[in-house]
Nucleic acid binder design. Structure first.
Lengths: 693, 693
DNA sequence: GTGTCGGCTCGACGCCGACAA
DNA sequence: TTGTCGGCGTCGAGCCGACAC
């Protein structure tokens, strides 16, 4: 009602946690207990952040299971299913919810596959104007009145005092105080996302005068386990009630799994498969704080973004959320277009664009989806991303699910002509951004003559790509002969990926010939320091497995990990190949820790039989501000079912562990070159975690 | 060395936590960090209790996998394996260990199948005299010097003060104080089972003077989560070191699973199957505090107990441990001999004796194994339990594992002649204790003319049994016609069990025709009250499934359930059949609670969408002395994959749930009669749990 | 001999203004 | 305007003997 808010939650009316004037509220607004899981929409959007948009009930959308899997990061999810990369649906329902333990907000979206939308796409129709206006919720974009958000200071979270309320915030959101009194004060009652009431003493005192929350604040901080850096939100609803939300500091997370979403609230991918087969509705959960990219895109936006003519070298801009939950635009340059996972999701548009940022740490976000970016002016190169097919073409890239890809006519002709066309374009035009990289003897980098390369691009993280099978074969041969990489050119392609990025990390103290090249299909991992004087060259992809456990130190704090795709290759030798085996659940490894400033540290888990005491010491040595960031195993490419390595896993802190494969395409690993001396272990892809307590 | 202690732990020497004189200790006794998992033997036995005996390394034993499964209570264990009921083994190793989080003691026993022992059994040989003396560890029976055990009082565990040390104990175990001082005191250092040191201030003060532990005691109580009723043990080793153990109050437990034993330390049943196939050694864990019955029996004891002539009506005695960890003998009468589970473990001796106790609550312990009891004098009835076979006989009851049952000669003749003979005896002699039960119109019970029935036996839990297939068929017919049970005779046999017990529960306010009869194969469950005026007659067996979850209330206390075989039939109608499906993981249900006096109560989990608040209220209404006892689901005989019942499971308190089949033989369920009005749900078999926090 | 309780001490939590960024 | 700190009041943990069973 106010500022064009669209009713997303039909049930939310019962709570009446929003409302315009104060005139027509229903009596049910006095009900204290909210409906399970459903939360106030305004508060939900405030907690979700400024960039979040949700599809509107009834609108046409494209669902990308590939993005969903990435979002879930659920290693327990079975990976044996066939889904097309783009599923055209209509939105049946959108429910705004909050996780019980962590107060994390998430949305439960119910979709039903819609053949008419699919038809429209195949006929090349874009979204209608009316749909374009309605297709996306705009609540997140209208400024919510009487709301404030403050990032907590050390004083706010210490036991020494209370919460210092910004003056504007108190005047905006709290009931007015009688400033004639010496120390005006009142009791505030605020409901959190679950409808639980929190009471605070609000006092205006001090010299100079300021607003403070005292009694009750400490209990809130403790219960919610707030740390400095996290943020709280206060929001006054239309009928004067106070709402209270939390926005925890942005940090690496483990997807929705660790929060228990998909188990308790939503269906996993497997039920999606069933629903699509039967054309029935299915529900998904989306946590806007976990990943920046959405996997349910309004159809009009999807179609419009693919009408753009995208070309390598094209400049673009894209919105991001800063740590202070504000919007910020970053600009970059498009350096490649390719499948993120050509084996499993051929023709998928999910993060199919390779980009390089002007002023932005590129370790993440180096792949984006077409609908995320806005092209900057000109630059219409030769590489048209896609034109919706107006006639069908027979290709070898039809989605494997025949029921869905050829639902009606039975001709066996793919409904995804654009995918195969996309493939053809890629293969036919050799769209590469190949950069030859020379490392001179003086150790300084030599920029390749690439005119579009932006000045901000650091040579120490040079990204190269190519996609020719022919070149690849040559390359592998070269690599195994060990010649090419010994100081001259890094022109590498791993074994089982269509498009690959290589990150070159230099170590100043190391001879120029000591070079680390890491190839992986999905994301670049944070820069890895090379421990001098050793050098490693690896091109590796491996079975990604998740290792989940509860850790408890001296029976006090319990942390729940949710780690995926952490693998390492210690003690490897040139020519080694291998794959991770599920039996490696009992092993030594590292605990990766990260503090609030993203400083990373790594604690070595000692080997048995000293593990028990050693681990305890290590954990107790951690700074309290640190958060468990990841956990990686030492024996990545070996099966560790051998006798004697069974109870090595620090029983003092690890319990309830489980080991299970995650959803990603299995890859074999091959070591091309490895150092000879010792302790070189590198985490190759993202390790994620969530600290539950 | 002292008092005949036999060295069970070869590795324990390195710790030298025991030793006789003080002369020949090795220097390694000064090592602070103990070997992971291995603990001091004396302390282990002190914590395990007075009745515990362990097989000696090298001795001949009988391993009963049926008892092991019962001990494990692990619903995740796969049930598709074939093992004979008695496996003759030699003990390779015995390791004494303690669980990391709970300080629970357990033993890891390594066995290797031994064909010679099996041969000896088949030839009718008992254990030799020498074996009889060595076959069992006697450490538990010799009084350990300088040891004391005190059950904690309310004062001991309160925050108000410290620990009041019994005078004898302090003088016996602690270093002497200088009593000439006004308030003599010293610092005590005691190592717990894991080798962790705890420091206490020991002071002798007060009027009258007494020994107290003050500073440090509270931290110990908190860390170990001790409650009044639990016990602590202090033990002075031969070289003067102080050891500190815990013996928690006896209560319903969930087997070893909830303690994380088999995950971290021991192999499950499946590895046993492998080992027996390959005749290699395998390791088992035994927690002496979980169940009173051991599943690894010295061969001589096994053989001797089965030489007894046991008959129905025979009187016997048996040792129990009281709550104060003392021994107590109970007497009883043998009322039946039958397989506990004739489908899965035909011919097994595990708890094959049905007993009735003279002065003892019979809701548990109504089945015992032959080696647990001592016959009282005379009473050599006609029912010889077993005579070891001196020649083999061909029967239909050979163990399904052909590899093992016919290991050498390949003739296909069973090595387990005694099993089939036992079966034959049962079938030939019709060994029943049939009791006809009449309920007169006045509602009072009528004792059947059973002369051996002890005075303490309550008529309200009358036990009946029979085993004739012929009678069974007649009976089923009668039941389905609905005539027999309408008030006259309860002579019932369920569909898929050879021997069955029926429990009759009366409700005084209900007409005599309203009768609840429940049939189940294994154990009687605690009495179930019938909610007047409804009545239910069910004969049911179903797929037993385990539902495991973590529950957390308001983010504070977390409980971990380990529940198996809980199923119910609400809203059932005569003739209904069904089986539990794994999809029922999301449902409403009941939380069963039990307080320290075994008073049971049942809280109804409300249906969604009110579940969140409702559950919170219910949980907060629980008495703090109560412990979560079980959890049962409402929709036992329906698959609950249907839409709409998916997020009903109180997300506020249940998380990390997993649903998995347990080890038992699947059975179908059939409802013979059911009431028409409403809310009748009955848990049919044992539900177990462990409260972790 | 030892379980429980009132009295007492001490330290952590938390409310206050001072002060400075 | 608001983050941090010293001052100080309050309360619960924990040490003590009194007292009773």
């Amino acid at each position: 009602m106010m500022c064009g808010i669209i009713d997303l939650n039909s049930v939310v009316d019962e709570e009446s946690c929003y409302g315009g004037g104060g005139g027509g509220e229903s009596p049910s607004s006095m009900v204290a207990a909210p409906v399970v899981g459903l939360v106030c929409m305004e508060l939900w959007h405030a907690c979700a952040g400024p960039l979040i948009s949700l599809p509107k009930k009834g609108s046409a959308v494209v669902y990308l299971p590939q993005g969903h899997l990435e979002h879930l990061a659920d290693p327990n999810e079975a990976s044996d299913f066939d889904l097309p990369p783009h599923i055209f649906c209509r939105v049946v329902d959108v429910k705004l919810k909050a996780e019980q333990n962590s107060d994390e907000v998430f949305a439960q979206v119910t979709l039903v596959p819609d053949y008419q939308i699919e038809q429209k796409w195949k006929l090349g129709e874009a979204g209608e104007e009316i749909e374009e206006k309605e297709g996306i919720d705009v609540a997140g974009k209208c400024f919510t009145p009487h709301m404030f958000c403050k990032t907590l200071t050390a004083s706010d979270t210490s036991t020494h005092g209370g919460f210092s309320v910004p003056r504007r915030a108190a005047e905006d959101c709290f009931p007015p105080l009688d400033y004639k009194l010496q120390r005006p004060s009142q009791e505030l009652v605020a409901k959190d996302l679950h409808g639980v009431e929190w009471k605070f003493r609000h006092i205006y005192r001090g010299q100079p005068r300021r607003h403070l929350l005292t009694t009750g604040w400490s209990a809130f901080v403790n219960k919610k386990k707030l740390l400095s850096g996290d943020a709280v939100l206060f929001l006054k609803t239309g009928d004067g009630e106070l709402r209270l939300g939390i926005r925890r500091a942005l940090q690496v997370r483990s997807g929705t799994k660790a929060l228990g979403f998909d188990i308790q609230q939503c269906n996993g991918i497997s039920s999606v498969v069933d629903s699509i087969t039967t054309k029935s509705s299915f529900s998904l959960c989306y946590n806007p704080r976990v990943s920046s990219s959405e996997f349910i895109i309004p159809y009009y936006k999807f179609a419009k973004s693919l009408r753009h003519r995208l070309s390598c070298g094209m400049r673009f801009k894209m919105k991001f959320e800063t740590d202070e939950a504000a919007e910020r635009r970053h600009t970059g340059i498009l350096i490649g277009i390719s499948d993120m996972d050509s084996v499993r999701w051929p023709g998928s548009k999910w993060r199919c664009l390779l980009v390089r940022w002007d002023d932005f740490d590129a370790t993440r976000h180096n792949r984006v989806s077409p609908w995320e970016i806005e092209p900057c002016s000109s630059a219409s190169g030769p590489c048209s991303l896609v034109l919706p097919a107006t006639k069908r073409s027979r290709t070898g890239f039809a989605p494997p699910n025949a029921d869905y890809s050829s639902p009606r006519d039975g001709t066996g002709i793919s409904d995804f002509g654009e995918s195969s066309r996309f493939q053809k374009v890629l293969q036919g035009q050799e769209i590469f951004c190949c950069e030859t990289y020379n490392v001179p003897v003086d150790g300084r980098t030599h920029q390749p003559p690439e005119p579009r390369c932006s000045p901000g691009f650091r040579s120490s993280s040079l990204i190269m790509m190519e996609g020719s099978h022919h070149a690849t074969d040559r390359l592998n041969t070269s690599l195994q002969s060990g010649k090419v990489l010994q100081g001259q050119e890094a022109f590498v392609r791993p074994l089982y990926s269509n498009t690959t990025m290589l990150e070159k990390v230099e170590s100043p103290s190391v001879n120029r010939r000591s070079t680390l090249l890491q190839g992986f299909p999905a994301q670049l991992c944070p820069s890895v320091r090379i421990p001098s004087p050793s050098s490693v060259l690896m091109i590796q992809q491996a079975y990604p497995y998740g290792f989940n456990f509860n850790a408890r130190q001296n029976g006090e704090k319990e942390v729940r990990s949710d780690i995926r795709t952490s693998y390492q290759f210690p003690d490897v030798h040139p020519g080694d190949t291998g794959a991770l085996l599920p039996s490696m659940r009992q092993s030594t490894g590292q605990i990766l820790l990260k503090d609030n400033e993203n400083q990373m540290d790594q604690l070595q888990l000692p080997y048995a039989p000293q593990s028990m005491n050693g681990t305890k010491e290590l954990l107790s040595a951690c700074k309290s501000s640190w958060r468990l960031f990841g956990f990686s195993l030492n024996e990545g490419n070996h099966a560790i079912s051998k006798e004697g390595s069974q109870s090595q896993f620090a029983p003092s802190c690890i319990r309830d562990s489980s080991f299970s494969p995650c959803n990603e395409q299995p890859h074999l690993a091959k070591v091309v070159k490895a150092c000879t001396n010792g302790n070189n272990t590198y985490a190759v892809r993202d390790v994620l975690l969530d600290m539950a307590l």
